[in-house]
Design a protein around this nucleic acid. Structure first.
Length: 510
RNA sequence: GGCGAUUUAGUGUAGAGGCCUAGCACGCCGCCCUCUCACGGCGGAAACCCGGGUUCGAAUCCCGGAUUCGCUACCA
């Protein structure tokens, strides 16, 4: 009988959630939903040194924005709580004691300085079966002395006793069997002396077991310690319910080498965090996908395809479609360079699906920023302007660059366009154009176009030159939607004003 | 250094012995559309890490090497 699928996303609140972490969360979520399972959010705050206030809320808000729903965990409750590791001290103490009582672990008094000396003593020194008997621990010291030291308040850690010479097998759902010999593992610290908390390894195993986690889906950086975790399940006698392991390929720098980092984002100009983050200590601000103008579904779709594919050529997929198609069989094994440019394309795509009125709402604050008085424009006007240019934007923020002329008259004219299109006779022709325009029964594009084009033809003018000069006065440069679509939307009086301004202000080159 | 993982165009990937003269997408280039810039449509350049095997036949299987990445903390 199949176990119920229960997965967990277990970040450390040491700062904003990294985009790689977001992808890990996403894959956990997709897998959980695919199998009608449970998604748990556990906060692994066992490193009191690196704890950052606000990070936990940030994580929760990020997941919410992306549409990654949590069923159980911090901020949601559930039957296996608490879900914050710092609140589970008593639980860990109990299990550490169990290991100690069964001789699966031992107490070690070695100070950081002593360990440093040992590590420098020879090249590949590690605390293991070959060295532990020459260190200061409960294996080498008489029981009463150990007891005495503890009573005296001497600091100590608990180390896992690893037996050498065993091939430990990790069955990974994307990589197959990974075998490593226990001799290369060291006696990992399970319980720290510094903050009275367990290390990741112990807390992780205990919690996954207690929370009945069926699949551990995490980044590849954990693969080397997976054998240790297998050994811990054995030591506790939990092998029958040990979760399946899945180690996801890492997200790499777009250009150079190595893991994607915060610095790459600064350097290359793209966010590496879902939401904007204000560092409480330094006050530094890191940009986020949300604030940059990304739609959550674009980020999700983009991230999903970095290390996974549906098995066919489909690329545009909603969360539901991703859930339906997700499986580890189609996960890749090698790290994926962070293809930021493709992310833009996804956003462009999803932006086209947003209706114009909604887009107009998002555009309003930007108009405000540029000093546009919105009272002068109806929602419908803004929406129509947006509709005409949205095909050429990747972000809502690009709307200003593309559609500003709908709201403000040009204050300068593109010199290259002036040189190419504004000849000596243009002021005269534009004056004629004003008359033609004023004589039109309608500014509707379909009616205005034949009239103006007819006039140009009758006079024998050069179509391209006249139309571009016209465009120059209205837009300020040679770009944008079709002229008659623009003038249909704009206030006719404003169009005339702009042509007049152009006649007065544009000077032919030379 | 040790251990592990990894390897298809610039990038993300499809491909599970003959269907591959290697597909798709982003990006790039060109053409078309056209009053402009875009969008869109069409087209193009561009890849199986290397060397040995196995086989009638290998991107796909085996071996060796190289590459890249990760881990190697009382961090996760």
């Amino acid at each position: 009988m199949e176990r119920q699928v229960r997965v967990r996303f277990a970040p450390s609140p040491t700062g904003p959630l990294h985009i790689g972490g977001v992808r890990t969360a996403l894959y956990n979520y997709l897998f959980a939903r695919r199998h009608s399972g449970v998604m748990i959010l556990r906060i692994e705050d066992t490193d009191s040194q690196r704890f950052v206030p606000g990070a936990e809320d940030y994580i929760i808000e990020s997941l919410k924005w992306l549409g990654i729903e949590i069923d159980e965990g911090v901020g949601h409750g559930g039957p296996h709580g608490p879900y914050r590791q710092s609140e589970r001290r008593d639980i860990y103490r109990k299990y550490v004691k169990q290991l100690l009582d069964n001789d699966k672990a031992y107490i070690a008094f070695d100070t950081p300085a002593e360990l440093e000396v040992a590590r420098n003593s020879k090249p590949n020194w590690q605390y293991d079966s070959t060295t532990r008997m020459s260190m200061r621990n409960s294996l080498t010291m008489p029981a009463d002395e150990v007891k005495q030291l503890i009573e005296n308040g001497e600091k100590y850690v608990v180390r896992f006793l690893i037996e050498p010479g065993r091939d430990v097998e990790v069955n990974d759902l994307v990589r197959g069997k990974v075998i490593i010999n226990s001799s290369v593992l060291d006696d990992k610290v399970l319980y720290k002396s510094t903050d009275d908390l367990p290390t990741y390894h112990l807390a992780n195993i205990v919690d996954d077991h207690l929370m009945e986690v069926s699949h551990v889906i995490r980044g590849e950086e954990w693969l080397p310690s997976a054998p240790l975790h297998v050994l811990l399940y054995e030591a506790f006698g939990w092998t029958d319910t040990m979760p399946q392991f899945v180690h996801l390929p890492l997200l790499l720098k777009p250009d150079g080498k190595g893991k994607l980092s915060k610095r790459d984002g600064d350097r290359l100009g793209f966010p590496v965090f879902p939401l904007e983050w204000h560092d409480p200590a330094s006050g530094a601000i890191s940009s986020g996908y949300r604030e940059k103008g990304y739609l959550p579904q674009a980020v999700v779709n983009f991230l999903a395809l970095l290390g996974w594919n549906p098995g066919d050529d489909t690329e545009i997929m909603s969360m539901d479609e991703l859930i339906n198609k997700f499986s580890f069989e189609h996960c890749s094994k090698a790290g994926a360079k962070f293809a930021y440019e493709k992310g833009k394309w996804f956003n462009h795509h999803y932006l086209q699906e947003v209706d114009d009125l909604t887009l107009a709402e998002k555009f309003k604050p930007i108009l405000e920023q540029h000093g546009v008085n919105q009272a002068n424009f109806t929602d419908e006007y803004i929406a129509k302007a947006v509709a005409m240019v949205k095909g050429r934007i990747n972000f809502v923020g690009d709307l200003w660059e593309q559609a500003a002329f709908f709201f403000v008259a040009p204050t300068e004219y593109d010199p290259k366009a002036v040189k190419k299109r504004w000849s000596e006779e243009m002021p005269r022709i534009m004056t004629e154009l004003i008359d033609v325009l004023k004589g039109m029964p309608s500014w509707k594009s379909s009616e205005a176009e034949p009239i103006v084009l007819g006039w140009i033809a009758d006079k024998g003018y050069h179509l391209g030159n006249v139309m571009n000069a016209f465009r120059l006065t209205v837009v300020g440069e040679c770009k944008g939607p079709h002229m008659f679509d623009i003038t249909e939307l704009m206030d006719p009086a404003e169009t005339i004003r702009r042509i007049e301004a152009g006649i007065n202000n544009i000077k032919p080159t030379e």
